[in-house]
Design a binder for these strands. Structure first.
Lengths: 390, 390
DNA sequence: AAGCAGCACGGAAACGTTTTCTCCATGCAG
DNA sequence: CTGCATGGAGAAAACGTTTCCGTGCTGCTT
């Protein structure tokens, strides 16, 4: 048995407990450090009795391995990077939580990096991920993914994207099925009698925004809807953008009786504008959002929106990375799934209702008057009643 | 000069670029690896010309050091843990962002761990932090901090808490100055003519909730306010709790004309209840929140609330940890600040207005009637007008 | 009965750094 | 001119693990 090389040379213990290392365990269990390592890593060939001794020593010393040393020799950091735009964007927290939870359950830790849409910051983020030797990166950021990602690709680091395909054999794609949710929404509005439906898109250079718009156009065509180009407004996925877009729509001669928005913040902005001009939602105007962020439930009226499960997205992202990093765990290594489909579906709340009686009735952009006969607040739970006006 | 020990034994390069290590740099710069290390770490004694050669080689090879190897020998992980309750709690994202940003700027990475109020999960979280050898932990979780933290304390890991002091010399405390913000709020309501002010607290076993209540009681006493015990309701910092609390207050014979809530979600719940019973806010009833979460701005009417800057909190937390970990950077090592005060201040929006004319006028809990003369929605920008009723 | 295969364990190398220690050169003073 | 101090650079140890390899034992086969 090898005695501790330099027991006396240890760093001063300081006030706290000394942290035990693998040699302490080996010493106590009267085995070699190799056996301790094998036991801890669940190698099957270890003798049962020895393993028992090791575990006992581990428990007694409250030993846990040093991740840094582990990673250094094994080459595995058990770390995934999660690249997002901004934590404060209400879209992300759930995504982060889902990703972190499943990662931790599988023994990984997560390094979150928010790019803040800033290329310089993005470079820093990627550098950090590289230095920490992440084993994979989930790129959940919206912005255009600069050639910075090449750095990762060249280092053979697996990646997973949303809506963006690459020819990199190590990267996977999550394909969001925008069409099903958006088709449901259009159908829903159609059933409520709407014939003129507008769309407020996101910034169209963002691929996911573009795809949402495409899905809407397709659904409209499918149902033979009149889609005036004038009713397709490009927004920017912000509340203010939604306000502006709605404002613009109200100035039109022929205005749709309902709009679908590319994300919830846009829809909430539209809601705001309608309230400002005393256009009652949903009696006079229906609004549908996209994403089903938390906030959607809390605005007034509660937002009908299209749900894209962040939990699903997170799980799919993790699994894509894991299946790349640990191919042996999965059935046929060669046939790793490179694409995963993420479903979307409509969540009906209070911001959609029957179309006003007169077809294409144009909601008046009335001046505000502070009398008591301004529109009533819509009672909770009462839905789809025809507005008194029209 | 030492030749590469085993250039041939390198791992197969695979499809990607080989990652260069410190030896490659040394070889190229024709210096020893020690000099490379010193250069990179900014040791002043390195000859200028050699340093220049090293930097050139570093740039050319796109070299960056391996954090794991670095940490293994130096004992420093350059990693801070951030322990929070739940990412999805709207209070946290800004805090996380602030903490991460300042940490990255100082060369640290952040390991975020959400406990989800679950002791078992908390144990896992702490274990993770220990295994990764974090150099410090910011404990921003609300829940009772179990003796699990002893594990960290015993390992001499610096910590920083909010509102909770310990005798651990390595831990610091952020003392939130609830009193100033809450006093401002009470003053504000007083100026608006309110004489009967209620308080919906959080769960009182949480220290920060308790302190908020205490601050309110003290402010009330200071201004000679009548504080009926009946107007002090214990909530649970959730929207539903806020709804229940408000519901309860409305059943009272003598009901306050304004309430201060221990957090914004509670206030939003109260807002909800008021809307449900057609009690107009702020004409008939004023509501003040606490925290100034993002959402506060988006509800209707926009919430008057007490701001506690998450950015400040994050910065203070980081600086507390940093000054413990790197004492040499700061003037007098022995005099490290163990407590930092975090200011709070009132943000006036639309949910507070003048008290109803009749003193102690009790808002009627009217049945809902769907007529057009139900209360008008409050126009944006028009504030503090006396309600028509009373 | 002897030889061989298999296997479980221990010894030791290796991972990529930082850091200590040693050595040499240079400069200044005696 | 010599000796010593100073300082900068290289050699090597150390960090705590995993993993490779060798060895000795066990059990089976011929």
């Amino acid at each position: 048995m090898t005695a501790r090389k330099s027991a006396g040379k240890r760093k001063a213990d300081g006030p706290g407990l000394r942290r035990f290392d693998i040699r302490d365990v080996a010493l106590r269990a009267k085995v070699s450090i190799a056996t301790v390592s094998r036991t801890i890593n669940g190698v099957a060939t270890v003798d049962r009795e020895l393993a028992a001794r090791v575990w006992k020593a581990v428990k007694h010393l409250n030993y846990y391995p040093d991740t840094q040393a582990r990673g250094l020799v094994s080459g595995r950091s058990r770390l995934f990077g999660l690249l997002i735009s901004e934590i404060t964007n209400p879209f992300f927290p759930e995504l982060i939580q889902g990703f972190e939870e499943i990662a931790v359950r599988h023994g990984y830790d997560v390094l979150i990096s928010s790019t803040s849409h800033d290329p310089a910051r993005m470079e820093v983020c990627i550098r950090r991920l590289l230095e920490r030797k992440v084993e994979g990166v989930a790129v959940m950021t919206f912005g255009i993914e600069a050639p910075l990602l090449d750095e990762l690709a060249q280092r053979s680091i697996p990646m997973v994207f949303v809506d963006t395909t690459t020819d990199n054999p190590l990267s996977s794609t999550l394909v969001v099925d925008y069409r099903s949710g958006i088709t449901q929404a259009v159908k829903h509005l159609l059933a409520l009698g709407h014939r003129a439906i507008g769309f407020v898109s996101g910034p169209l250079r963002q691929r996911s925004a573009f795809l949402r718009k495409e899905a809407f156009v397709e659904a409209s065509r499918q149902f033979g809807l009149e889609t005036s180009l004038a009713w397709m407004v490009e927004g920017d996925h912000t509340l203010e953008g939604g306000m502006r877009a709605a404002e613009h729509l109200l100035t039109l001669g022929a205005c749709p009786s309902a709009i679908l928005c590319s994300n919830d913040m846009t829809a909430i902005g539209a809601l705001r504008t309608m309230a400002k001009h005393n256009v009652r939602v949903p009696e006079e105007f229906s609004i549908v959002g996209f994403d089903n962020i938390h906030l959607a439930e809390f605005v007034h009226p509660a937002l009908t929106t299209i749900q894209m499960s962040r939990k699903d997205l997170a799980r799919a992202a993790f699994e894509a990375l894991q299946s790349t990093v640990e191919p042996q765990q999965h059935a046929k290594p060669g046939e790793r799934q490179r694409e995963t489909s993420i479903p979307t579906s409509l969540v009906v709340r209070q911001s959609t209702g029957p179309a006003p009686h007169r077809e294409n009735a144009k909601p008046a952009k009335r001046p505000y008057t502070d009398t008591t006969d301004t529109p009533a607040r819509r009672p909770r739970g009462v839905r789809n009643r025809v507005g008194a006006r029209g």
